[in-house]
Design a protein around this nucleic acid. Structure first.
Length: 290
DNA sequence: CACTTGACCTGTCCGC
DNA sequence: TGCGGACAGGTCAAGT
């Protein structure tokens, strides 16, 4: 479930591993996920060098020397894993989930001029890759709809409150999962930040006080920052650009902790369904208050 | 426009 | 042991 911290971690890894490497071949046969023509791939991808990778919300943008770029979304089970020259047959180190590559979920292979490779794996094929001119990225409809980056210091609490309250009749959980309200929060960090702010996930967005929303905003930022420091969350599939797991879930307070004790009050963590999502919360700490 | 639901996929787990 | 069905959750299209 790559959310903001996981995508940020992959981005940082790619910026350590790929800068200035030249792409010498691309193996792909996945029209739905990577629909570009062979002609465009040969013209704008093969032969170009990696300039830099950036993140916007949960999307990655890999800039190329051709002035084109790869826009990549990992969705639920996507992985971008780099392997050096002699690591393709590497087994399962303790901090990894994956073995020799390619494996049966490999959808695209980028090969570089030093014989290293980048593998795009995606078990469920929800993810996608698009090759396009860099100048067109910010004009993509879904990019234009994205809300502010939660960790951008220019994004202030008053704007957060205003964006949340536009969706007054939605649950607060549905609202912070809405990428047009703010970009990058998914199911894990929604549950964790609502626990931290002591807000019931079903609370209606229009009913929360300034104080509660301010606390939620700072909680979202704190949770995202801590997860980035820990390399993100590995629930089932997520690994970073070197194939390593993230360790945030070892410190999670509610996510996947139903039946366990709340670290703050000792009550039993419950799992319910809110906004069609599995939702974990503490019934004592997170009451429906204003 | 606000809001909800279903579709997209495949691997895993649970009950019979 | 095999098998059907529920489930996992990011996003968008289509629905109310």
């Amino acid at each position: 479930m790559p959310e903001l911290p996981e995508v940020e971690t992959v981005k940082n890894g790619l910026n350590r591993l790929l800068i200035n490497k030249k792409i010498v071949s691309v193996k792909f046969d996945w029209p739905k996920g990577f629909p570009n023509s062979d002609a465009d791939v040969n013209k704008f991808l093969v032969g170009s060098r990696i300039i830099k990778t950036r993140r916007r919300g949960k999307s990655l943008i890999i800039n190329l020397s051709s002035m084109y770029c790869l826009v990549i979304h990992l969705k639920m089970t996507g992985q971008l894993v780099f392997r050096g020259d002699e690591q393709f047959g590497a087994g399962h180190p303790n901090d990894s989930l994956i073995g020799p590559l390619p494996d049966k979920s490999t959808r695209v292979i980028f090969e570089f001029d030093d014989n290293s490779r980048l593998f795009f794996n995606d078990q469920r094929k929800f993810g996608w890759i698009r090759l396009m001119p860099e100048v067109e990225v910010d004009n993509l409809d879904f990019m234009k709809r994205l809300g502010p980056e939660p960790l951008n210091p220019d994004f202030k609490a008053n704007e957060f409150r205003g964006r949340v309250r536009r969706r007054k009749n939605s649950s607060i959980k549905a609202t912070i999962l809405d990428q047009s309200v703010l970009a990058g929060v998914g199911n894990i960090y929604a549950d964790e930040s609502l626990w931290m702010a002591k807000i019931h996930p079903s609370s209606l967005s229009g009913t929360l006080s300034d104080a509660k929303l301010n606390l939620l905003f700072s909680s979202i930022k704190d949770v995202l920052k801590k997860s980035i420091e820990l390399g993100g969350s590995t629930d089932r599939n997520y690994v970073d650009a070197e194939g390593k797991k993230g360790s945030y879930l070892e410190f999670a307070n509610v996510f996947r902790r139903e039946g366990k004790m709340c670290s703050r009050c000792g009550s039993e963590i419950l799992k319910i369904r809110v906004a069609t999502r599995g939702t974990h919360y503490c019934p004592k700490c997170q009451r429906k208050t204003k």
